[in-house]
């Protein structure tokens, strides 16, 4: 039964789907959360007049946001080139 089922299931493609979805889902959430943290922290530090630290936090936020956008564009490009 297990052998029959194994022969029916496209194991490699299913595993690739699981890995791709997990990496994309967790990666984009992490990067977007870092972006929110960065911008939030930047505003907070700005009000305390710590401009250098605020700038660094904003830069981290911007980088993380760019990473999210790049991941989305990459995903769509991969989809259209099957």
């Amino acid at each position: 039964m297990t052998v029959v089922l194994a022969s029916l299931v496209e194991g490699k493609e299913l595993l690739q789907t699981v890995v791709a979805a997990t990496v994309a889902g967790l990666g984009v959430t992490f990067a977007f959360s870092v972006a929110i943290w960065g911008f939030g922290r930047s505003v907070e530090l700005g009000t305390k007049d710590r401009r250098l630290a605020a700038g660094a936090a904003a830069a981290i936020g911007t980088l993380a946001l760019l990473l999210v956008l790049a991941a989305i564009v990459f995903g769509i490009v991969v989809m259209t080139h099957k």
């Binding site: 979805a21 889902g25 959430t29």
Partner: peptide, 19 residues
């Protein structure tokens, strides 16, 4: 955000392989 993001990641990956 996480529910939608995870859902989109699963659907797009599956679509790519024709599921």
């Amino acid at each position: 955000f996480t529910a939608q993001g995870s859902g989109a990641a699963v659907i797009l990956a599956s679509t790519h392989f024709g599921f």
